[in-house]
Design a protein around this nucleic acid. Structure first.
Lengths: 104, 104
DNA sequence: TTGACTTATCGCGAAATCTCGATATATAAT
DNA sequence: ATTATATATCGAGATTTCGCGATAAGTCAA
């Protein structure tokens, strides 16, 4: 949650791309939610496997990248069954951007 | 000048501090410009030596950090005589902050 | 020219990051 | 229980970054 950790998370081409892809999930990934029951809504989340395929890196790398971005606060995740869905943490990102604008 | 390079430059405690110190040079450094003749104005610039002392790292490290931040676009420099003065590149930083706000 | 001073560059070992394959864990299906 | 699938974690080699001291390059004063 430290500023440095956010910058570090953003200091990698692949991770930066992931963040951008997740801005428009429906544009960059197959339709999601096939495994999410009706009651639960986690809009905009994409499962790890689809992100991995898009990124073209190994499964382990993508998993740890996503975990790193979540720890930094940029992403949030939701697990349903054997799937983990990730999406952008928009309020956090907005807040961060605002902080950059005023304090950098 | 690539976005990644900016994030990398910001991914270090010392470099981030330097950028903050240079927001209010008169607050963090001795008075500057003793070696700048009247005709030239490079307001807000601080010489490498003063930045080094404040940072508490070696001269070589500080010099290369400053150079790195300049290459990224965050700083600009002006050499007069044997002194090199660095200051924030405010338009660039503002532009970067705006880009973060709209594109991150 | 010589010497003093400021900054930049070079080379290095230590630490961190990148990325992978292998394996572990968790859940689902049979 | 066993098997299959999705994700997380572990260990390792390659690359990058960190920060240093030594040295080079540029400038000024005597």
């Amino acid at each position: 949650m430290k500023t440095i950790d956010i910058f570090k998370a953003l200091s990698n081409e692949t991770r930066l791309s992931m963040l951008h892809w997740l801005k428009e999930p429906e544009k960059h990934f197959p339709a999601q939610g096939a495994h999410i029951p009706k009651g639960i809504h986690f809009v905009g989340g994409v499962c790890v496997g689809d992100i991995q395929e898009k990124a073209g890196l190994s499964q382990s790398t993508v998993s740890s990248y996503l975990n790193m971005m979540q720890k930094a606060g940029l992403l949030e995740s939701f697990r349903y069954g054997q799937w983990t869905y990730y999406r952008r943490n928009e309020p956090f990102i907005r807040e961060f951007a605002e902080q950059i604008r005023t304090e950098l």
